[in-house]
Simulated scan of single mutants.
Amino acid sequence: MTDSVDGVSELRAWLIEEVARRTATDPRRVDPALPFSALGLTSRGAAELTGALEVHMGRPVPTLLAWQYPSIDTLARHLVTGAHPAAAAGPAPAAGAPAEEPFRR
């Protein structure tokens, strides 16, 4: 379990630095629990982030993961442990409720 925890912490730190760089923000001001949109990441920036993740991790990372896991914490946890969005994202929206756009346009 420690390896998994260490892996999440390492990936989380990398994601904080990467999001800070892409949004021209001080890494100390990046709250990994906030949605990417609240951190200033656009849809394009999220797609670019998943591309950078592929290089960093040395394996394919589907672009849609940034929408399924819309924060640094949830994305890092999923990529390292395989945690699913239902476990990480809280309650599901009511039936017929519009999906929330996680990124600025």
Rank of each mutant, 00 (worst) to 15 (best):
A88W: 08
T42E: 12
L39C: 01
A38T: 04
R105L: 11
E100T: 15
F36H: 00
T42N: 03
L65N: 13
D73Q: 08
M57T: 14
P60L: 08
S4K: 15
G90Y: 06
A46K: 00
T23W: 04
H56W: 11
Y69P: 02
P102F: 00
R105P: 08
A95V: 00
P70F: 00
R12I: 03
R59M: 13
I16V: 15
A99F: 13
T63K: 15
R59Y: 09
E54L: 12
F103T: 06
D3T: 15
V19T: 13
L75N: 02
M1T: 15
L11Y: 04
P62Y: 14
P27F: 03
L79V: 05
S37D: 02
I16S: 14
P35N: 12
A33S: 14
V61S: 06
D6F: 06
L34M: 10
V80Y: 10
V8M: 13
A24N: 11
E48H: 05
A97K: 07
V8L: 05
A24V: 10
E54N: 06
T23R: 04
T63F: 12
A92K: 07
R104G: 00
H56I: 08
G51L: 01
P102Q: 10
R29K: 12
V80W: 02
A33Q: 09
L79I: 06
A89N: 15
A87C: 09
L53W: 11
R12D: 15
T50S: 10
E18I: 13
A76V: 01
R22Q: 15
L53Y: 03
L49W: 11
R44M: 11
R105N: 10
R59I: 09
H84I: 11
A66F: 05
P93F: 09
D3V: 07
R44G: 11
P98L: 12
V30K: 02
L75R: 02
L15Q: 02
P35E: 13
P60A: 05
E54V: 01
E48C: 02
D3C: 07
P32T: 10
A24D: 14
W67L: 07
L11S: 07
V80H: 12
D31H: 03
R22P: 06
F36R: 06
A24Y: 10
A20P: 08
R44T: 09
V80N: 14
S71I: 04
G7E: 14
R12C: 08
A66N: 08
W67G: 11
P98K: 02
H56Q: 10
